[in-house]
Amino acid sequence: MKVFYDGDFNGTGIDFKTDGTYIFDNSAIGISDYFYGTYRIDENKITMDKDTIDNLTNFKFLEIKDKELEQGKTDLFLYQVDSLGNAIERSDEFRVTIDNRKK
């Protein structure tokens, strides 16, 4: 699964590999910093190996959810949540660009 946050001049992408590892790409104005780690996934809930990656915090727990974009049309997004599954205020929304999880 791959997700991406587009922040105009900056962006963040996470490539979740099928072997339980990820590549975290934090970019700004054409320069990328890459970070590597592991994750666990249980249905729509992802637990990362660390809470802080580069200059971004609250990455320990993530959840994939449908978001209504237009009336009747939804798309998948990845959200930062706390250990109870509550959305973290003012966190980024990561659009799911590739979802190859087993159904």
Results as ranks from 00 to 15, higher is better:
residue 65 K to T: 04
residue 24 F to C: 02
residue 49 D to W: 14
residue 11 G to Y: 09
residue 76 L to S: 02
residue 99 D to L: 05
residue 83 S to H: 10
residue 73 K to I: 10
residue 66 D to C: 09
residue 65 K to E: 12
residue 22 Y to K: 06
residue 48 M to V: 05
residue 7 G to P: 03
residue 70 E to P: 08
residue 94 F to A: 01
residue 12 T to K: 01
residue 53 I to E: 05
residue 95 R to Q: 14
residue 46 I to Q: 01
residue 36 Y to M: 11
residue 53 I to S: 03
residue 61 F to D: 00
residue 35 F to V: 06
residue 82 D to I: 00
residue 37 G to K: 10
residue 42 D to H: 08
residue 38 T to K: 14
residue 78 L to R: 11
residue 30 G to A: 01
residue 10 N to S: 12
residue 47 T to M: 06
residue 15 D to T: 09
residue 57 T to Y: 10
residue 23 I to W: 05
residue 58 N to P: 02
residue 44 N to F: 07
residue 19 D to Q: 07
residue 9 F to V: 12
residue 66 D to K: 15
residue 87 A to V: 00
residue 6 D to E: 15
residue 76 L to D: 01
residue 44 N to H: 12
residue 80 Q to G: 01
residue 91 S to Q: 10
residue 25 D to N: 03
residue 45 K to S: 04
residue 86 N to C: 07
residue 3 V to T: 10
residue 9 F to N: 12
residue 63 E to M: 10
residue 17 K to T: 11
residue 93 E to N: 12
residue 86 N to V: 08
residue 56 L to T: 07
residue 50 K to H: 04
residue 103 K to R: 11
residue 44 N to L: 09
residue 93 E to V: 04
residue 85 G to A: 08
residue 101 R to D: 00
residue 18 T to V: 04
residue 69 L to R: 11
residue 39 Y to W: 04
residue 27 S to T: 15
residue 31 I to K: 15
residue 55 N to Y: 13
residue 51 D to W: 06
residue 14 I to S: 01
residue 10 N to P: 01
residue 97 T to Q: 06
residue 96 V to C: 14
residue 78 L to W: 07
residue 63 E to V: 14
residue 52 T to N: 11
residue 80 Q to W: 03
residue 73 K to Q: 10
residue 23 I to S: 09
residue 69 L to F: 02
residue 41 I to V: 13
residue 67 K to N: 02
residue 1 M to V: 14
residue 10 N to Y: 12
residue 62 L to N: 00
residue 67 K to I: 09
residue 48 M to G: 02
residue 71 Q to W: 11
residue 58 N to G: 04
residue 71 Q to E: 15
residue 13 G to L: 04
residue 68 E to A: 12
residue 53 I to C: 03
residue 87 A to Y: 02
residue 53 I to P: 05
residue 93 E to L: 08
residue 4 F to D: 00
residue 26 N to Y: 07
residue 102 K to V: 12
residue 90 R to D: 14
residue 36 Y to W: 11
residue 75 D to T: 09
residue 88 I to D: 02
residue 43 E to G: 14
residue 62 L to R: 00
residue 4 F to N: 01
residue 11 G to L: 07
residue 77 F to I: 11
residue 13 G to H: 03
residue 94 F to W: 03
residue 78 L to Y: 05
residue 54 D to S: 14
residue 15 D to N: 13
residue 29 I to F: 08
residue 16 F to Q: 09
residue 76 L to F: 02
residue 53 I to G: 06
residue 26 N to W: 08
residue 83 S to F: 01
residue 14 I to P: 00
residue 46 I to N: 00
residue 86 N to H: 13
residue 71 Q to K: 15
residue 90 R to L: 08
residue 26 N to L: 06
